[in-house]
Amino acid sequence: MLHVPTIDISPYIDRQGSVEQREAVARALDDAASTVGFMQIVGHGVPKSAIDGLTAAFDAFYALPIDVKKRYVRPENRGYSPPKSESLSMSLGVANANQMNDFFEAFTVGAGRSAYPERPDLPASSYPENVWPDDVAPAFRAGVEEWFAHARKVSRVLLHAFTDGLTLPTGYFDDLVDHSIDIMNLNNYALDEGEIALAGELTGMGAHTDFGILTVLWADQVPGLQVLDADGVWHDVQPADGALIVNLGDAMARWTNDRWLSTIHRVDPPIVDGRIMRRRSAAFFFDGNFDATIETLPGCADTDRPGYSTITVAEHIEAKLAGLKAGVAPTGVEREAERLAAARSAS
């Protein structure tokens, strides 16, 4: 069975642990990153009050009528995405029978250009400003921004630990993340009454890999998240009490030449008494600078396994977004697509 380890990162929070304690955490992270690409993180320092504020924001917005929520649809990667407007599996070049059939709805926020006033030259295409729903203001924005700040801090703490786990010099990634494309999706998995009968070809969130450095995920303890192992078998993963789920993205896999794994995963909440069981999640994507170059890290080159072609963070994200939002298959994802096509349900 696939094992997602639980790792206490408290020695890295505000550098409060000893050198030996941090070394032990870095080794555990290295092991998890190289074997499964997923981990459960505890000792992260995020207070319960922040989770309460996040869930209150969730419930306030998603209780709005669909026509009200659609007022906040934006062409850029911000605001509201209705059900069946995306297909995550197309980010791997694998089409669904009905194309845009992921039934989750989402609200996306991120670091706009105003988050980096020292860099007025940042492109709006990578750093669009947020749209905030007036109908549930100001509590929605306050709850979301507080959680965003905590997730952002956790991601930076983890990057420091990852640097140690890869035995790279301290601060190695600093110049690659000082104006990072940080994005968070508030995902709501549900369908209106009556639509469940139409759900034969629908998926909660299609199989995909994440695009950036790492993802910090808060989720309800409701079944649905599944991770694909190296043998093509899907396994259920649920957050432990008080834990955040963390997984690596494509940028880290490419940097490490697949020493560390960007693992395919999907979401399919269960159907109970003919209804989809509601599931909420907040996925914070720590993607790196738009102009950061993704190329093989020192010590990760392998003569038997050529490294990936060089690409920038923005180029990679744009290709993936074209897949999930417009149905345009990206190039260079053949390996992942073959794994997905061969996947089977765990017995």
Rank of each mutant, 00 (worst) to 15 (best):
G242F: 08
A292F: 01
W218M: 09
L186V: 02
T215W: 05
R279Y: 06
A301T: 03
T203A: 14
I183D: 00
T303L: 11
V267E: 12
S262G: 10
L214K: 02
G204Y: 10
A240D: 00
G274D: 05
L214D: 00
A282V: 08
G204N: 12
D241N: 10
N188P: 06
N247R: 10
D273Y: 01
L198K: 15
R266L: 12
S281Y: 02
G212E: 04
E193R: 14
L214G: 03
D231V: 03
Q221V: 14
I245A: 15
T256F: 02
P306Y: 02
F211H: 06
T293K: 15
R275F: 06
D231L: 05
A292P: 00
R278W: 07
I271H: 13
W255N: 02
I183F: 02
A251D: 05
S180A: 12
N289D: 14
H265V: 13
G200I: 09
A207T: 07
L198R: 14
G274F: 01
R280K: 03
P239G: 00
F290I: 07
I213Y: 01
P298S: 02
A282Q: 01
D302S: 06
V216R: 05
P223L: 09
W255R: 03
R254M: 15
R275C: 05
E195V: 08
V237H: 13
N257E: 05
I183Y: 00
P270Q: 06
L214C: 05
L297P: 15
L214A: 06
G232S: 13
D268E: 08
A199C: 06
I245G: 15
V222F: 10
G206E: 09
R305P: 08
P298T: 04
G274N: 02
D210E: 03
Q238F: 06
W234S: 02
I181D: 07
G299K: 06
L198M: 13
I294F: 09
D210T: 14
A199P: 00
D182A: 09
A251T: 15
M277T: 14
W218R: 12
M252V: 07
R266W: 05
R280I: 01
P223N: 06
W218A: 07
R280W: 00
P239Y: 01
G288Y: 04
I245E: 14
P306E: 02
I294N: 04
A283V: 07
L202V: 02
A190V: 04
P270A: 07
N289G: 11
L186N: 08
D236S: 15
